[in-house]
């Protein structure tokens, strides 16, 4: 199955939204205007933006802590995300979780879990619910998280139970500064699918068309009750965490080179196909900026939490 023109422009718009938001996050962090622990997904925007065309709005999305792009792509509250980055009471988690614990259950999105790999098990639990409710789970994490035992335990259990889960690995070849060559046996993460006798494939994770065609094939398989699939998307992680702000000049360099940049590549493709014009590109970029501006305004005008608010919600009811 191929993406139609409208879907591809939607993906492009989401990629722009994520890119402009993540760049602004780095910029404001560097200035000291926002603080905390932040893990941008710059360079990986094609994956969340494309997966949003694969799952339904009420399907479940569970990711690791570099999940800001997935949060945005699923249509979760963008204003509340920015309020969260500013530590405001109106933030998506009331200013408690910050950028690495972004979640919006009104969109079935658990898109922040800061213990690397633990989201694979949680996604597998979501799979039991999805199986009962006729939905699917899309679980996403970096290749660094696939060397945790929980990755194996999850794929094994999901396969035996035929759980409706698409496991997506964002292969950015960076694990706390180590490369796979230094840490990981085997050439491809997707090869591990063979161990479970489930479908597995590696695609160009910077190309929405490549991601979509394999992901939608796998989702059809999953929805038909045949169990999970493993999709590995090769991409690049431009920033580890914004606390390492020295990376930012290099990031801006990468944006200038289309071979590294999923957005620049997609623009070239869309132009060649006559879908994207100068005027349309400008309109899309303006729209991304407008959304960002609105979110920034909302966040900056939102109240800070009261110190005592941090005592609430340890339990669902006071004990």
């Amino acid at each position: 199955m191929m993406l139609d023109m409208e879907d591809r422009l939607d993906i492009y718009q989401k990629m722009l939204q994520i890119r402009s938001s993540e760049l602004k996050m780095c910029e404001l962090f560097k200035k000291g205007e926002i603080v905390g622990h932040m893990l941008p997904c710059l360079g990986q925007e094609a994956i969340p933006s494309t997966l949003a065309k694969v799952y339904a709005p009420d399907d479940y999305l569970v990711t690791a802590h570099r999940g800001g792009g997935h949060y945005m792509a699923k249509g979760c509250d963008f204003n509340a995300m920015w309020a969260e980055l500013y530590g405001r009471a109106t933030g998506t988690t009331k200013g408690r979780g910050g950028q690495i614990h972004l979640m919006d259950m009104s969109h079935f999105a658990m898109t922040g879990n800061a213990v690397v790999g633990q989201h694979w098990g949680i996604a597998t639990g979501a799979g039991f619910v999805a199986r009962k409710r006729g939905k699917i789970v899309v679980a996403v994490g970096g290749e660094g998280s696939t060397n945790r035992g929980i990755f194996h335990e999850s794929l094994n259990m999901a396969t035996v139970q035929k759980l409706p889960i698409l496991y997506v690995v964002e292969f950015n070849n960076n694990q706390m500064g180590n490369t796979c060559e230094e840490t990981t046996a085997g050439t491809r993460i997707a090869n591990r699918a063979f161990a479970y006798d489930i479908p597995g494939a590696t695609v160009d994770g910077n190309d929405p068309d490549a991601i979509y065609s394999k992901a939608i094939e796998y989702v059809d398989h999953i929805r038909s009750g045949k169990g999970p699939c493993l999709l590995e998307c090769i991409t690049g992680k431009w920033t580890d965490s914004v606390s390492n702000i020295r990376q930012l000049p290099e990031v801006l360099e990468k944006i200038k080179s289309p071979e590294n940049d999923c957005i620049a590549r997609f623009e070239v493709k869309l132009r060649a196909e006559g879908i994207l014009t100068d005027a349309l590109e400008k309109a899309c970029k303006n729209r991304a900026q407008e959304m960002l501006q609105a979110a920034l305004t909302f966040a900056q005008n939102s109240p800070l939490p009261n110190p005592s608010d941090g005592m609430d919600d340890v339990f669902s009811q006071p004990v």
């Binding site: 479940y60 569970v62 259950m105 079935f108 658990m110 633990q118 694979w120 098990g121 949680i122 996604a123 597998t124 639990g125 979501a126 799979g127 039991f128 619910v129 999805a130 009962k132 409710r133 035992g149 929980i150 335990e153 999850s154 094994n156 259990m157 035996v160 139970q161």
Partner: peptide, 23 residues
């Protein structure tokens, strides 16, 4: 009544994920 492999981490993960999504 789901029988699992000897996979305590996944059992714990499933407890959290299934509960979070409503079971």
């Amino acid at each position: 009544v789901v029988d699992t492999a000897i996979s305590e981490a996944a059992i714990g993960g499933v407890a959290v994920g299934a509960a979070a999504y409503g079971m």
